[in-house]
Computed example of a mutant assay.
Amino acid sequence: MNPNIDLNAKTVNVYPLPLTYSYAEAMHRILSDKGWFTLPKSMLSGMTASCFRLSVHRQLHKDSPTAYNWMAEHTVAAELIGVIAAQSAGYQFAPTFPLYQQKAIRDIRKSLDQGTGAIVWKDQFVVITGYDDHKQIFYYIDSPTATDGLELPYTRLGRNESPYWYYQIYEGQFETEIPQMIRESFIQAVYKAEVHDPMLPESQYACGLLAYDAIEQAFISGIYDADGAYETFMYYAICKKEAASYTREACRNWPELEATARHYEHLSAVYEEITTELSLNQGAAACFRHTKLLDLVRAAKNAEAAAIQSIRLLLREPIENRFHDVGLR
């Protein structure tokens, strides 16, 4: 696939995206099976602030949705909903990897013995559901619709095409109040919109509201991964839809969120239009597609900026009390 694609000469290869797990989907599968979270996935995506994150590669590579600080964000995600989590990550080429691999195997088996699955990175987030010590394998599922477990030999745990390994297990719960969870999730939404992820080099990635400027520049220059752009927008369209659903539901506890809910609903509608434009066949006039996409990206930025501003107005005091780091908890 050629990453240097001219919008005026290249259309997206449209294909059904595979139903794979995002981190929030994998987390929801485990916690709902455990009985620790009984609300829809959109509520977990909102309460953990996962649906509010936006990070993109400046050439819109398909790794954009998973380009963020897993350790930091997943720790906060679990804490926000009152779950005690343990996790570890690193590079498989490190000389200490075999030691970490053995510890991961022990930790995951222990969690499974207690009736709790584990999240593992296997070039996407997957859920470990069981193991067979005699065969030295784990069983895992890699999509929300999967029922039969795939096999992962112990020796292959963490050995991915990408150089990273990661796992997270859940050890218990602590009491937290729904109003506080909702309030904190929207503070985190502001943080994700305004602060660049320090793990990502700014020369290659853009985060939050600044991601829209990077997307716009990619479309104007024509130097971007068309299939990656399609996958990225499909993923974030789901996130924006969940943000809208979550905010609308949160209005039941906090009616003052009504304006914010309308902004996110508008944002979700704009993302649907963007994915439709990216799916157009080659018969569409190139100049029309070029103008329409740029207009939609700018509309999305305005809608998201309006949503964040409305949250800032509602939570001005707690946000300002965190001085220069709104992400502090």
Results as ranks from 00 to 15, higher is better:
278 L>M: 07
50 S>L: 04
10 K>W: 14
324 H>L: 06
168 Q>F: 00
174 F>C: 07
166 Y>N: 01
34 K>W: 09
187 I>K: 10
257 L>A: 03
175 E>A: 07
251 C>V: 08
194 E>M: 14
154 Y>P: 13
31 L>F: 15
55 S>A: 08
289 R>S: 00
86 A>M: 05
312 R>E: 12
306 A>L: 05
21 Y>G: 06
118 A>K: 04
38 T>W: 02
116 T>V: 12
156 R>C: 02
22 S>P: 09
22 S>N: 14
260 T>G: 06
87 Q>H: 04
48 T>E: 00
7 L>C: 10
68 Y>V: 07
161 E>A: 14
51 C>W: 02
184 E>A: 08
101 Q>V: 12
188 Q>P: 01
17 L>G: 05
42 S>T: 05
61 H>E: 04
253 N>Q: 10
287 C>T: 15
279 S>E: 12
188 Q>C: 07
262 R>W: 09
94 A>E: 14
327 G>A: 12
49 A>Q: 09
126 V>P: 03
6 D>C: 12
194 E>I: 11
80 L>P: 02
227 D>S: 12
62 K>I: 08
302 N>V: 04
163 P>L: 03
269 A>Y: 06
322 R>K: 08
16 P>W: 01
1 M>E: 11
103 K>W: 15
147 T>S: 14
207 C>M: 08
226 A>W: 01
310 S>R: 02
318 P>N: 14
2 N>R: 15
195 V>L: 00
62 K>M: 10
3 P>L: 08
207 C>V: 13
137 I>W: 00
318 P>S: 13
112 L>M: 09
276 T>M: 03
222 G>P: 15
54 L>I: 12
61 H>R: 07
178 I>Y: 00
33 D>C: 08
92 Q>Y: 15
306 A>V: 01
301 K>C: 09
71 M>T: 11
197 D>K: 02
20 T>V: 11
40 P>C: 03
104 A>E: 05
241 K>M: 06
261 A>K: 00
25 E>K: 14
165 W>E: 04
261 A>E: 02
112 L>N: 08
167 Y>S: 13
12 V>P: 10
322 R>C: 13
11 T>S: 15
143 S>N: 12
181 M>P: 00
256 E>M: 13
17 L>P: 01
12 V>D: 00
129 T>H: 03
110 K>C: 07
58 R>W: 00
96 T>I: 15
96 T>Y: 14
171 E>Q: 11
45 S>Y: 02
42 S>Y: 09
275 T>W: 07
